[in-house]
Design a protein around this nucleic acid. Structure first.
Length: 635
RNA sequence: GCUGGUGUGGCUCAAUGGUAGAGCACUUCACUCGUAAUGAAGGGGUUGCGGGUUCGAUUCCCGCCACCAGCUCCA
């Protein structure tokens, strides 16, 4: 039973909770006329809905996604209201709620300064204090256009003009401010007090590069000041896990001016990269893959044949060899095709799974570069699977399982997207349908959750993408499975079927890590630099208490190294606390300290990253433990 | 590529229209130590690059470059 205070003060009880969006839908269908949601007095996390026609009430909480959206959407309107008060000449574009807050796009002669942002925030707080009620009303399309023309809001006029001619256009009004909006909103501005404007950035009108760039202000809002504080603290914490910061601190990789977007791997980073590759080879061998390596530079003719030249040449690096134009590979597939064509294939050979750790180069726009996440040269853990049409589903399932097992190992959360035929594509609609159905069918069979990304496929086929999160919740595409019926056609790939006729195989392009560089970036942020023992660049650090025990420390370190454990020593004439501190800052999983009492007992003192000081142990026990962790790839 | 912001020793940051300073790190010396910073001394910067204004620019102005946030893009 839910008690709700209605707008007119009447308390009603309901046994059914309905979400904000359901109500909003009712409104758009004309079933209800006025809907807002608000915060029930005394329970700031409860939002309420009032529908004035027949007093239907729906309730949701701020913890609901819908409730958060309504709350932050109102905050966004309040920001627009504040800006109209302070800078009346500003033109309004659009302002929705987003996952961690809201934004609003504005058109103004001069960009917003930091000081202006503070003034806007202060004005928003004033608007909250004024406790302004929000009212929804509608008018026919032509009236709505007139209304916004009078107010000199060209962007709003354009938005309304794009709506159907017979549409009833809804508006939300709060005091002197009225905005074109589908809602829903809070009942009043009064509870939107914990507001913070985060940043100003450019954003194209309607998301198109061809349009004018507007000023976008990002902000966030919470029902409680303490929640806002917690959010800001979380962001601060996340910054400490940034792979670019940790990459430098832990000496994993470097990004230098001498090669913008071309990462350098330092010895520590190289251990992680090589260890990942070792793991990759192991699981692929088990899954029935063979491995090849194809050249980095191949001639232009090949790229014309694959279609990459037509679709992608602006992003390819080119060079000339003996007056013949060549390109550095942006993808491995054409090389893979040529390898397939090296011999005749029987249906008995299929599916043929061919892996390649290929270094590819792509000219990404300078503004798109981001640490290891988006670079201009990276290693794809690629593979091409050649198969018959009736093997499609099983092969896709096999790859999905393989990718899932990789992500499980690290404890990654991920989401899956199915991307369909883009505008600029090759191949027949029929081929695309077969391919898309194959991918969708595999996902459905496996009961996987996925979102459909219309028109976002590769030019040669649809794809399933796996997205992983970084420390502040941005997601990056890592794994991908692409089904391709075009390349086999273009390269005239064949196999001999049971009846002796030549048939065309279907192929899958797929990666698990995606880019090893990006994957390492995600790993660094996920583990905050505290890699599982099997990946840690240094697994054990041996520290003698003082110079007197250096000899014993050396003996211990030698034994650890002999057992295949990555061991470092620190014999510097620094205090033991100092050297322990450094080893901890380096995120070394195990620290072994040796002094007088250890020497006497022929033992070592162990500190593990997980359990802290563990006291004296036999060295053989420590070795066995680390080896077991490495073997099982314990997290 | 676009919009905005930032740019000072290896790192984190301070200062100023009169040619730069701290901590950490590094080197040396002393301490010989029991689980997150022992002390002292020393070396290290053409203040991102190029112009302009000025008697004088690291500081003010312009251009470029790089980085950061977002947008666009990501076959």
């Amino acid at each position: 039973m839910i008690k709700v205070t209605l707008k007119d003060g009447v308390v009603k009880e309901f046994d059914k909770a309905v979400t904000v969006n359901e109500i909003a839908k009712n409104i758009s269908e004309g079933l209800a006329r006025n809907a807002c949601c608000g915060i029930v007095d005394g329970h700031v996390q409860d939002l309420r809905f009032v529908v004035d026609k027949d007093s239907e009430v729906a309730i949701c909480t701020f913890d609901d996604e819908d409730g958060k959206k309504a709350f932050r959407h109102t905050a966004s309107h309040m920001m627009a209201q504040a800006i109209k008060r302070l800078f009346p000449e500003t033109k309004l574009a659009i302002g929705p709620s987003i996952s961690d807050g809201f934004y609003y796009d504005f058109d103004r002669e001069t960009p917003f300064t930091h000081e202006e942002l503070e003034a806007i925030e202060a004005e928003m707080k004033r608007i909250a204090k004024e406790n302004i009620e929000l009212e929804r009303f509608t008018m026919p399309r032509d009236e709505a256009i007139k209304f916004m023309k009078e107010r000199e809001e060209p962007y709003k006029v354009e938005l309304i003009e794009d709506l159907p001619e017979d549409a009833e256009i809804s508006f939300y009004q709060q005091g002197e401010f009225t905005d074109l909006c589908a809602g829903p909103h809070l009942l009043s501005t009064k509870n939107v007090k914990a507001v913070k404007l985060m940043s100003v950035a450019g954003a194209y009108w309607r998301g198109s590069e061809k349009n004018k760039m507007l000023s976008r202000i990002y902000g966030t809002a919470y029902t409680k000041a303490s929640d806002l504080e917690a959010y800001l603290t979380m962001l601060e914490e996340a910054k400490k896990r940034d792979h670019r910061k940790l990459g430098k601190e832990l000496k994993l990789f470097a990004l230098l001016d001498e090669g913008q977007g071309f990462p350098f791997f330092l010895p520590n980073g190289m251990i992680i990269k090589n260890t990942l590759i070792e793991y990759w080879r192991e699981i692929h061998k088990k899954a029935g893959y063979v491995e090849i390596s194809t050249p980095i530079i191949l001639n232009r003719q090949l790229w014309e044949r694959s279609g990459h030249w037509d679709h992608y040449k602006d992003n390819m690096y080119t060079t000339s060899i003996d007056d013949v134009e060549h390109s550095i590979k942006p993808m491995n597939c054409p090389g893979g095709m040529l390898v397939y064509k090296q011999e005749m294939h029987s249906y008995r050979d299929l599916p043929l799974r061919v892996g390649e750790l290929g270094l590819v180069h792509r000219h990404e726009k300078s503004g798109a570069l981001h640490g290891l996440m988006r670079v201009r040269c990276f290693t794809q853990d690629d593979a091409h699977i050649f198969m018959t049409q009736d093997q499609i589903k099983d092969e896709i399932k096999g790859v999905v399982k393989l990718i899932d097992s990789v992500y499980q190992l690290f404890g990654f959360k991920y989401h899956v997207e199915l991307s369909t035929k883009p505008e600029d594509s090759m191949g027949s609609d029929e081929d695309w349908e077969i391919a898309t159905d194959g991918l969708r069918g595999a996902l459905e069979d496996m009961g996987m959750d996925y979102v459909v990304n219309e028109g976002d496929g590769a030019f040669y086929g649809p794809k399933i993408d796996f997205h992983l999160e970084d420390s502040i919740g941005r997601t990056w595409q890592c794994g991908t499975i692409q089904l391709d019926m075009q390349m086999p056609e273009r390269f005239e790939l064949e196999y001999t079927d049971k009846d002796g006729t030549k048939k065309r195989p279907v192929m899958i392009h797929r990666v698990c890590f995606g880019s090893i560089e990006r994957f390492i970036g995600i790993l660094i942020e996920h583990f905050a630099g505290q890699f599982p023992t099997w990946l840690a660049p240094v697994q054990v650090k041996v520290l003698p208490i003082s110079e007197k025990f250096e000899e014993y420390a050396k003996k211990v370190a030698d034994e650890l190294t002999e057992a295949g454990i990555r061991t470092e020593t620190d014999y510097r004439a620094e205090k033991i606390v100092y050297r322990v501190r450094e080893a901890r800052n380096e995120r070394v999983p195990y620290i072994v300290v040796v002094g007088e009492k250890d020497l006497e007992a022929n033992k070592v003192s162990l500190r593990s990253r997980v359990d802290g000081d563990e006291g004296q142990k036999d060295l053989s026990e420590v070795i066995a433990r680390i080896i077991e962790e490495v073997k099982t790839r314990k997290r």
